[in-house]
């Protein structure tokens, strides 16, 4: 909350790496709330089926995966029915992928705002990522329905779920910060993002189980992709797959935090030129 302050604000050219100014970010939390709320409110305006889009995307992917990977290719699925095996992964994946795509374009999309008024720019990609949480909740409801249908009772491991969602958000924001800041200067990023999402989908164990990898060292290497930890964690917490992903999640979390922190510093470093270049 920007309050009347008698503190003196100093404006001068910044050099090199600069502080993240998290305290200031906190003061502007209401703006974060309003921008997130705007993104949610506006997203499905003037569409025919509105919020159904949030569900359609993972559900249709799940159906295609089930037909081709589950049905035709007889992909193993860690002892649970293939449709729910893939859907439990697609729900956090969609959260991550949409968050990353939207935050990458967020700064360019808010050019008008950035050129006209000051606020911590970090709020822009952050709001883009947060606005996807609503879509995630809708898709998650479908997941619960499917679990009821397949008669799967979650174990007490489900308490870890919020942390796994957080891990997905951190990863999404981390990548989003890097890409959105780059996108301001190089509109190439616009073409990179869809391609990146596609590749990332294949290197994440969504259509297949990571148990296909048997070498322990390779498995940890594989977990450097933070979404591996998220997806494996989701299946373990909800469906009770016997994959014991502790080490994997640990490596993934570490990678995600590194991505976020480096992304935030890179973003802040580039921030000084946003208003001039965007």
């Amino acid at each position: 909350m920007p309050q009347p302050n008698t503190k003196t604000l100093i404006i001068e050219p910044s050099q090199g790496w600069v502080a993240l100014k998290l305290r200031e970010l906190w003061r502007y939390r209401e703006l974060l709330y309003f921008l997130t709320w705007r993104d949610i409110k506006v997203r499905y305006k003037q569409t025919l089926i509105g919020g159904v889009w949030a569900i359609l995307q993972p559900v249709l992917t799940m159906i295609v995966f089930s037909l081709f990977f589950g049905g035709l290719a007889k992909m193993p699925s860690d002892g649970v029915p293939y449709p729910i095996f893939s859907y439990a992964a697609l729900v956090p994946w969609t959260l991550f992928a949409n968050g990353m795509t939207q935050s990458s374009n967020s700064l360019v999309g808010s050019a008008n705002l950035i050129k006209k008024v000051y606020f911590p720019r970090l709020i822009v990609p952050l709001a883009s990522v947060m606005s996807n949480v609503v879509d995630f909740v809708l898709a998650f409801v479908v997941l619960i329905v499917m679990m009821l249908f397949f008669g799967i009772v979650p174990t007490e491991q489900i308490i870890w779920l919020p942390l796994l969602v957080l891990l997905a958000l951190i990863t999404s924001l981390g990548v989003g910060l890097w890409l959105s800041a780059m996108n301001v200067q190089f509109r190439d990023i616009r073409y990179v993002v869809p391609f990146l999402v596609q590749l990332w989908l294949f290197i994440t164990p969504i259509a297949y189980p990571s148990s296909l990898i048997t070498n322990d060292l390779l498995k940890l290497l594989y977990a450097i992709n933070p979404m591996t930890g998220v997806v494996e964690g989701f299946r373990w917490a909800l469906l009770g797959t016997q994959t014991a992903p502790g080490a994997v999640i640990l490596v993934s979390s570490l990678a995600a935090v590194i991505l976020l922190v480096s992304g935030a510093y890179y973003f802040r470093r580039m921030e000084r030129s946003f208003a001039d270049v965007v």
Binding site: L9, I10, I11, E12, P13, S14, I114, K115, K116, V117, Y118, R272, S273, A275, D276
Partner: peptide
Amino acid sequence: QITEPTKGR
């Protein structure tokens, strides 16, 4: 604070 100065304070 929309844009930074190149020099000065």
